[in-house]
Design a binder for these strands. Sequence first.
DNA 1: GTCTATATATGGATAGAC
DNA 2: GTCTATCCATATATAGAC
Lengths: 207, 207
Amino acid sequence: MSDTMLHNEVTTDTETQIKLAARKIFLQKGLAGTRLQEIADEAGIGRTALHYYFRSKEKLFAVVWKDFFGELASRMPDLSADNYTIVEKMQLFAGHYIDDAMQKPEVDLFLLNEFNKNPALFQDIQNMLQKDFYQYFKAGIADAVKRGEMKGNPEQIFLTFLSSCMFPFAAMGMIKSLLNLSDEAYLKLMKERKQYLIDFLATAFKG
Amino acid sequence: MSDTMLHNEVTTDTETQIKLAARKIFLQKGLAGTRLQEIADEAGIGRTALHYYFRSKEKLFAVVWKDFFGELASRMPDLSADNYTIVEKMQLFAGHYIDDAMQKPEVDLFLLNEFNKNPALFQDIQNMLQKDFYQYFKAGIADAVKRGEMKGNPEQIFLTFLSSCMFPFAAMGMIKSLLNLSDEAYLKLMKERKQYLIDFLATAFKG
DNA sequence: GTCTATATATGGATAGAC
DNA sequence: GTCTATCCATATATAGAC
């Protein structure tokens, strides 16, 4: 309680430790699968002390979820410049996405699960990147279709595009089993996938 | 205990009821997320009575998992005939896959989760469809690449192919939120996707 | 303000009633 | 053979100790 501690706390204070621990466990196990005990152990704190800092498991999850989503914006490169074609923007996005996902491959399946179980979570982040992200690409794709540069329903094209980025990470466990890959071999495959996807996107939707 | 009941039991006996209930709940919630109470309620039986029919939760899951996988073989059309090109085989598979997945769209995310959490589950079904399924398509794609009919790494092509079939169902919740779709609109989009994918696969990997 | 002892609920499994 | 009363472990949350 000394005055000297008042505004000097670094990012290693208890509250931050808890947030980091919670983030790690929630990402691995999801909301329902996470036990507060695990978070407490990871944070090096007593189990019930968590309730002092965050009233409940749901409250803690809500905080982590918001932090987490702000950070996810890094998967969205700056596409505001008009001197890119929609295909180039898709290539840019795919490249950024894979670079980022390779650092935290658990994120993709986590997102699918939490959105699936709790659609309300989407409301929380409407103002962040998601809604714009879809409308942005859909409009660009629709334009390209009109000009005859792409073939097919813009919604379907968008889904195929998103699938090709997200699925290989969301399905990490299945892919490792199915293709019989070690952790290293899997990461190598994902690294190769960056260039593959950029090449693929250049022509895939021309029809 | 009368003799008349011995071999006459239909598929509505308690054991079958439990299996059906377990299948439904496990698919929705996964192994870890499922509470035996829910299965018991769904089956109209006491909670602890489950232990009489199936010794433990894991045993019950194992039974359901096997049944479930046998049934999944329906997503694999007969591709043995040699008079199909690999592209035609991919189109056939995609069509069957979407028809089947529309009947039970929870299956895809369930599979991703269970394979991710428990790689050992894969061993159980090695003799069924999966291993062959991958090697089969990979070999066909590699041949097409050699002949110059396709461009790119066969593994990446396979991943993109699988992504385009599986992801739209695995990400159902996210897609409904992101595209702002009702249940009906989502199913309509998936129905359209069948023809879209068949058209897409015809040219997507030509490079 | 920070954390712990304790309460309450719920999950799964066993032993044994009918 | 079928199901229930009960046990034990674990989960979250509160009240209160320091």
